[in-house]
Amino acid sequence: MIALDYLNPDWAAEDDMRHLILHKAQVHQVTPEEVHDYSREIVSWGPAIDQAAVVDLGKSDWLLSFAQRHLARCRHFRIMFYDEYVDVICESITAAHGAYAPGCGTQ
C-alpha cells in the first residue's frame, strides 16, 4: 500500500489535510504538467474521489504495455496535482480526511 498526503489548493484550510491510499500499486509515473502532451489524449476527469482529482482510465494502452501476469485486477489511474500528473497502475484508490497514519487504511 502506498499513501499520498495532499491539500487542495486555494480554498482548503491548512488543517484540511487529506490522503489517498493506492491499493496494491504496481507501477507509477510522474509527469510535470509542462511536458505532458495534451494533444495525445483527452481525459474526462468527471467527479472527484472525495475532492481529489483522480480519474480511472481502466485497461489503458499504458497498462496493457506491461506483462499482465500480476495485473489482472489492476486499473490505470491518473492523479492531478498542482503542477504534475501521477499515473498509477493499482487495484484501487481510496481517499480519506487527515494526514496518512499507518494503520488507517486497509491492505
Rank of each mutant, 00 (worst) to 15 (best):
M1W: 07
A3D: 12
D5H: 05
Y6H: 04
Y6G: 06
N8L: 13
N8C: 12
N8M: 09
P9H: 01
W11Q: 01
W11D: 03
A12V: 01
A13H: 05
E14D: 09
D15C: 04
D15W: 07
M17N: 12
M17E: 13
R18T: 02
L20Q: 01
L20C: 08
L20E: 04
I21H: 15
I21M: 11
L22T: 07
L22I: 15
H23A: 05
K24F: 04
H28L: 09
Q29D: 02
Q29Y: 05
T31Y: 00
T31M: 04
P32F: 02
E33S: 13
E33I: 14
V35W: 00
V35I: 14
V35C: 00
H36M: 02
S39A: 08
R40F: 03
R40P: 01
V43A: 06
S44K: 15
S44R: 06
S44G: 07
S44V: 06
P47Y: 06
P47W: 06
A48Y: 04
I49Y: 00
A52T: 10
A53F: 05
V54K: 06
V55T: 13
D56K: 08
D56Y: 08
L57V: 07
G58R: 00
G58F: 08
K59V: 06
D61N: 10
D61W: 04
W62Y: 15
W62L: 07
L63A: 02
L63V: 03
L64K: 14
S65Q: 13
A67Q: 03
A67C: 03
Q68L: 14
R69C: 11
R69N: 11
H70C: 04
L71Q: 10
L71A: 11
A72E: 14
A72D: 07
C74K: 02
C74Q: 04
R75Q: 12
R78A: 09
F81W: 02
F81R: 08
Y82L: 11
D83Q: 07
E84D: 06
V86D: 02
D87N: 09
V88K: 06
V88T: 09
I89C: 11
S92L: 07
I93V: 13
I93R: 02
I93H: 00
I93G: 09
A95C: 14
A96R: 15
H97S: 07
G98H: 10
A99P: 05
A101Y: 03
P102M: 01
P102K: 03
G103K: 01
G103L: 12
C104F: 10
G105T: 15
